[in-house]
């Protein structure tokens, strides 16, 4: 198994505020890794640094063998061709149909002709179960469908790594369980490495090979392990996150 993401001594922050200190981890090809932790611990911040939206204070991020930190526009482009990102709200282009949302990157970044692009885009929609909604506009779809369409768009250029920012945010438990199954199926059939930001315990158990747990107080990684091992962790903070059984009725 080769390594596709390698993060070494990463420091991130905004202005005078440091959010993550000395983060180190690596992700192997084909793995599904979730980034989890309570609100404000830097999950989304870490993701946005991994996809190169924000420059880190210092450290190194290797994506598929290319160094992201300090890379020129050409090196950055080489990395961007190998990753796909699904943003939290879907971020589909509202003025285009679902199909056009997927064909857009293909027309710009592949040499295929219109017919092949059309076939390719429709098959991506088939993978996420939205084939019959190709001509719908994003605002005509439900929240769960928009998320699935956004995953199809993120996979348009056959990325090696897919980053998903809170795929189940704002979805009901049944829809989010469906989405989890889809993510797992895509990871297994398409051989894509996935990094998923989430704080849903059910999702982590359903999709993750390993989980990276961040913590606000130490501004970094509290633990990295399989979900089952984390649930048995001797660290009280990790265990309490994983065993956060909600009482039937919240105590007042």
């Amino acid at each position: 198994m080769s390594t596709v993401i390698e993060v070494r001594h990463l420091y991130c922050g905004w202005g005078s505020r440091t959010i993550l200190e000395d983060v180190n981890f690596s992700v192997a090809r084909g793995e599904v890794v979730t980034i989890l932790g309570g609100s404000g611990c830097g999950k989304s911040t870490l993701l946005k640094h991994l996809i190169g939206l924000y420059p880190p204070r210092s450290g190194s991020i290797q994506v598929v063998g290319n160094e992201l930190v300090g890379s020129d526009s050409k090196g950055r482009e080489a990395i961007l061709r190998k990753i796909g990102v699904m943003y939290q709200s879907g971020a589909l282009f509202g003025s285009m149909s679902i199909l056009d949302n997927i064909t857009l990157p293909l027309t710009s970044f592949s040499q295929l002709d219109t017919k092949a692009i059309d076939t390719l885009a429709r098959l991506k929609l088939r993978l996420v179960g939205l084939e019959e909604f190709a001509d719908f506009y994003p605002n005509e779809l439900s929240g769960g469908m928009q998320k699935r369409a956004a995953i199809a768009r993120a996979m348009a250029l056959d990325p090696q790594i897919l980053f998903l920012d809170e795929p189940s945010a704002g979805l009901d438990p049944i829809t989010s369980a469906e989405l989890d199954r889809l993510i797992r199926r895509l990871a297994e059939t398409q051989g894509v490495t996935m990094m998923v930001v989430t704080h849903e315990l059910a999702s982590i158990a359903a999709i993750a090979d390993r989980a990276i747990m961040l913590d606000k107080s130490i501004k970094g990684i509290l633990a990295i392990d399989t979900p089952a091992a984390l649930a048995q962790s001797s660290d009280e903070r990790v265990a309490s996150f994983f065993n956060a059984q909600r009482p039937a009725r919240a105590a007042v």
């Binding site: 429709r122 088939r126 993978l127 019959e132 190709a134 059939t189 051989g191």
Partner: peptide, 19 residues
């Protein structure tokens, strides 16, 4: 095996639904 797995995921017997 890899190719077969990818192709199976696309449900190759089913024709494409065109607009």
């Amino acid at each position: 095996a890899e190719t077969q797995r990818l192709l199976t995921a696309l449900d190759p017997q089913q024709a494409l639904l065109l607009s």
